[in-house]
């Protein structure tokens, strides 16, 4: 997310018509579409700048296809309660994602369900707002 924020900052730095955009963005995902994937976790890649859930989803033909589901950074995710061990290899998950525009098997994480129930991703669990 930070890199993405930097992308936005870069855009902010642009003057006049010379708007700028960094190399990283979530623009590859179609924000108007949401798809639900069901499969088994291959790996939770706890990497910077972004974390990925690699999940094996069965195609209509029955073959396992790997999807890469992109999340925010480890720092930001950890603040919502996620950890590198939140999902383990073989965990059965259902994930709601914005899919790639170009048909590549990937998506932007929105929400999901894991072995222990709903995965984090909804409203923040934070103290009351400051007065």
């Amino acid at each position: 997310m930070k890199t993405k924020t930097h992308a936005l900052l870069a855009m902010a730095a642009g003057l006049g018509a010379r708007s700028a955009l960094a190399h990283h963005s979530f623009a590859m995902f179609d924000q108007s579409q949401t798809v639900t994937l069901e499969g088994e976790v291959k790996e939770l890649r706890w990497t910077n700048p972004h974390v990925f859930i690699e999940v094996l989803v069965k195609s209509n033909a029955g073959a396992a296809e790997e999807w890469s589901i992109e999340m925010t950074s480890p720092e930001h995710l950890a603040r919502t309660g996620w950890r590198p061990t939140t999902l383990k290899t073989g965990d059965h998950v259902t994930l709601n994602v914005h899919p790639m525009r170009d048909g590549v098997k990937g998506g932007q994480y929105l929400s999901g369900t894991g072995p222990s129930g709903p995965l984090l991703g909804g409203a923040p669990q934070q103290p009351e707002a400051a007065k």
């Binding site: 990497t47 700048p49 990937g106 103290p127």
Partner: peptide
């Protein structure tokens, strides 16, 4: 911050999987 109680640093570069190809944002396999 309520869900972590130590400093965790960001990495500006890291494992970059979203290159721009032919003017479009993409996603590379793991």
């Amino acid at each position: 911050v309520t869900h972590i109680h130590r400093m965790v640093y960001e990495d500006c570069e890291g494992e970059e999987r979203n290159p721009i190809v032919d003017g479009k944002f993409t996603l590379t396999p793991a």
